[in-house]
Design a protein around this nucleic acid. Structure first.
Lengths: 191, 191
DNA sequence: AAAGGTGCCTAACGTCTGTTAGTCTTCCTT
DNA sequence: AAGGAAGACTAACAGACGTTAGGCACCTTT
């Protein structure tokens, strides 16, 4: 019952302040109980983190699969995923938490995080390249698909960093500029 | 004498493990003294952080000014700064420290960090746009300079994120791919 | 109605960490 | 040679934090 509320509060607070800077007492207070009561639901602070991290990864994985499908065109798929990423950063709690955890993990949990993240990263890379190769069925690319895929992931990282650094508004402007650069570079004749 | 050694150790450890996860005893041990002895040189842990952060900002500012001069061409200036950023990430201690502090600051120090970083960000934006406008003296741009400047900063952020996420080797490959995309988008005819 | 589990509480422990107080040695200055 | 600052030490405190122990109320099951 309240285990769900605890997970939500943990994601929100870990995402905002980081793992080390979030005491269990803060999570407990957010759901209206005392810190020791958390131990009726989780074995330890690390256990709580692992639980919510795995949950957040699987949510983001579903978002990715919904946005970037093999059938969608590049602008319907890749561009949409970029825009939705920015939107989800303020609309959800799992994305801020995820970005923070992945880019600067708490040392003791780094191994677990890296392991789970590999699944997501591999799926991301696979889908991006798939989307780009699908594109060439209609229109040849101005550059090799593997290089274009690498650059897309770099652009996604730039948007991640801007989200962490300056928030969704700045990241939205950046997304526009980066996508225009990217789309222009993909055209075989540069238009 | 040893105040310098303390600053170096602090930058290295804060950069590797973060502010909260680095006890003063670790910094003291790194220079061969005990934790309370640090108070002969600094008023508090926060004071130590502020000192080394300001130092790191000023070092990076000088690097920027050396790489991106008004006279240099876009590829001599902007491209060089990207490549040197990746190189400095493993060759120096101040850049890992700086990226970590700026993207995910310790809450109590966020105000100070943001304030000092504004100076650097403003100078960065100014120089990038200057370099791009200088470019049009030789060759017109394929897109508006302010948009191209924004995209460049986004690309720099992508490289920052990749440095944090995967380290210098992956970041170097990413830099190549992103610069090729960027340079292609800048050409008036796309070549 | 009895029994047992669930979920919360308070009290408390042990550890870690930033910080202060007080002392001793070393070295430069006068 | 005397004096004093610099810079290190040990001892100790106070607070925060994760965690455990033990107990109490409520609800479901039998």
């Amino acid at each position: 019952m309240s285990a769900q509320a605890i997970r939500q509060a943990a994601i929100r607070l870990f995402g905002r302040q980081g793992y080390a800077a979030t005491p269990l007492s803060a999570i407990a207070a957010a759901v209206g109980i005392k810190a020791p009561s958390l131990y009726a639901h989780f074995r330890s602070k690390e256990d709580l983190f692992r639980t919510v991290f795995d949950e957040a990864v699987s949510v983001e994985l579903q978002e990715l699969m919904a946005a970037v499908t093999p059938e969608a065109s590049v602008s319907d798929g890749l561009h949409r995923y970029l825009r939705e990423t920015v939107g989800r950063y303020e609309a959800t709690t799992h994305l801020p938490f995820l970005l923070r955890s992945i880019y600067l993990p708490p040392p003791q949990l780094a191994a677990h995080i890296r392991e789970r993240d590999k699944v997501f990263s591999a799926e991301l890379a696979r889908r991006v390249e798939q989307a780009l190769r699908g594109q060439t069925a209609f229109l040849p690319l101005g550059m090799p698909p593997d290089e274009a895929a690498l650059a897309f992931i770099g652009i996604l990282r730039g948007i991640h960093a801007e989200l962490l650094y300056a928030g969704p508004d700045a990241a939205q402007r950046l997304t526009q500029a980066l996508w225009r650069v990217y789309a222009r570079a993909l055209r075989p004749d540069g238009r």
